[in-house]
Nucleic acid binder design. Sequence first.
DNA 1: AATATTTGACCTCT
DNA 2: AGAGGTCAAATATT
Length: 357
Amino acid sequence: MENPVNSEPRTLLISGLLEGKELAKQLLDPSNPIENQELLLERILAIFNQGLSMASFNLKSPRSSVAAAAAAASPRSERCIQDLDHHHLHDISNRRKILPRWTKRIRVGSGSGTALEGLLDDGYGWRKYGQKDILGSRFPRGYYRCTYQGTQGCLARKQVQRSDDDPTTFQVTYHGHHTCIQPSHHRSQPPSLPPPASPEAKIEQHQQPEKHDHPPPEYPESASAQLRVKTEDLDTNVNHHQMLPTTSSFSSVLMESENMETENYNTMADSFFPAFYSPECNYFLAYSRHIDGNIATGISESDLNESISALTSVANSPIGGFDFSLDQLGIDPSYPFDVAVFSDDPINMDFRNLEMV
DNA sequence: AATATTTGACCTCT
DNA sequence: AGAGGTCAAATATT
């Protein structure tokens, strides 16, 4: 029963467009530095994209889009029919391989028994759709999908696995970025606060040496006050934590390197520029992080091009410039674009602070 | 009544 | 064939 908030897409769409309007006004402000103008443009574009995707998603009949077909509404018998479609089959089999995937280790400070898992709220609305005993693990693995899969076609998923050796820690593996607008995230409104708990939770960040990829750091580290991420160790000048509510942290989060099935994602570009792609939906939103006006520290454009084109197979790099178009990218505009635009995830909070203050 | 969770069956991948 | 992942009917919760 999470997110009882009204998630009516129309409302969200309108408020998003209002934000776009506001940004457009700022764009006209001649005192704005040129870098900011680029950012504003990019963001406005993203808002348009999101709006388009929302509108098209809600207009279409559920069966008419892959995203919706992937939604849970489809009975098993219909699935079999759909599976006759080889393309569709191919899409589905590819999806798991290509979707970005990253893992976090979350330690809950205190608590007992089943209540612990409730402390794992990361600010998003999740709906449990399965649980499985895992070979060699004492605790079952929980499977969650985005609450708004049905209404907004968001394909984000996560798995929660309680650690064997330390039952107070959970390994949370995310699959895919949210393409939805989450009401609880909107306008930086953190979800309801959890009951206060041990405030001394220590947050660490580390990487597994054998896997050199970074977790996409744009994931909203609990827009809620429940998780606080220590980002000082991140090698960027991004100050996520400044944007995060820090009132009561009682969970620790260890950002782990990703356990990707595709090495394609395994690039610096992905960590610095968590391009919100979702190849199974064939969409790509040009989106990058501009911190201190330097968007590509340590990353060559060719690196970006390589990784991104490999990822999407439809896109050229959006990083070097923002002059992409749906046609250029071969994107079906009817698919949901990724978003983060309306959510208050850290990266966008950065944007807000950078551009609107 | 609407929405979320549980859980056994089914599907996919290795 | 077996393990992991997902579906969906039954059940629980709000």
